[in-house]
Design a protein around this nucleic acid. Structure first.
Length: 261
DNA sequence: AGTACCACCTGACGGC
DNA sequence: TGCCGTCAGGTGGTAC
């Protein structure tokens, strides 16, 4: 679930709640979520330090904790943060708990343990390690065009490829193609430049609108397909009914009336 | 190069 | 009520 808009909201909440507070200690409840570090290393690194700044690249959230050390969070499908006071009940599926001197805590929660926390030297290192493309809200039209114009992949698969553009997941890929009026099984190399440009523009519109809505699916405009993202639901634009198909084993919803091949 | 499929995980939900 | 199968979906790997 956490795609670019969700992670951006996590980042803003983290900035508002946890920036410039001194860390007292770190508790690891489940080692599985640590990628290349240990509970001891995290404590050595973080104790007495502050979260200096944060940024986001695609679906990754980076927190600067030292000159050349950043915490990188990935939220998998069910990951999230919760900020709470010391002494309050710790939420279920909390795997990492960061205690601050002011008696607040940051809990990293992930029911399905697919998310990961790691330590990197820099954003560049993270990008290299995970072979991430430019962020979906940062990518220029020129770079987007270069990355996609010759691709023979399905539109849906390409938009979700973090090595081509970073931050778009299953749900927002459907929304972008719906608003671009393009069939998810279309191919990039068969599109006109204008159609590619439409996708590029819709990416920005969809993601920024979602962020403005607090990444809450329920708050999205009614003309988005996401609130109707279910087989047999009525298309908000035309008289057709939403259909489901699978691309790369992932559920894909589209409107057969609006999105012709 | 691109797609399919699997593994990782576990809560939610529908059918019977 | 309760058991069971299926779904959800990001990443990263392998097989074709």
């Amino acid at each position: 679930m956490p795609e670019l808009p969700d992670v951006e909201i996590f980042r803003r909440n983290l900035e508002a709640s946890s920036l410039n507070k001194k860390v007292s200690r770190v508790e690891v409840k489940d080692k599985k979520i640590l990628h290349n570090t240990t509970e001891k290393q995290l404590n050595d690194l973080l104790a007495g330090k502050k979260f200096m700044s944060s940024k986001r690249h695609g679906k990754y959230l980076l927190v600067q904790v030292d000159q050349d050390k950043e915490l990188a969070f990935h939220f998998g499908m069910t990951g999230k943060f919760k900020f709470l006071e010391e002494g309050k009940e710790i939420p279920n599926a909390t795997h990492l708990l960061i205690h601050f001197n002011d008696h607040h805590m940051l809990a990293y929660i992930d029911k399905r343990k697919i998310g990961r926390v790691e330590v990197v030297k820099s954003e560049e290192e993270l990008i290299k390690e995970h072979q991430l493309a430019q962020d979906a809200l940062e990518i220029s039209w020129e770079e987007f065009y270069e990355n996609f114009k010759d691709k023979k992949s399905f539109l849906k698969a390409g938009l979700m490829d973090q090595g081509l553009i970073a931050g778009i997941g299953n749900v927002y890929a459907d929304e972008i193609l719906y608003q671009a009026r393009l069939h998810p099984k279309g191919k990039f190399n068969e599109l006109s430049t204008q159609e590619l440009k439409t996708i590029y523009e819709k990416i920005r519109i969809v993601l920024t609108t979602a962020i403005e809505c607090g990444a809450s699916r329920k708050e999205l405009p009614a003309h988005f397909i996401i609130p109707h993202r279910k087989e047999g639901e009525k298309c908000p634009y035309c008289e057709s009914y939403i259909e489901r198909l699978e691309i790369g084993g992932r559920a894909t919803f589209f409107c057969p009336g609006c999105q012709k091949k």
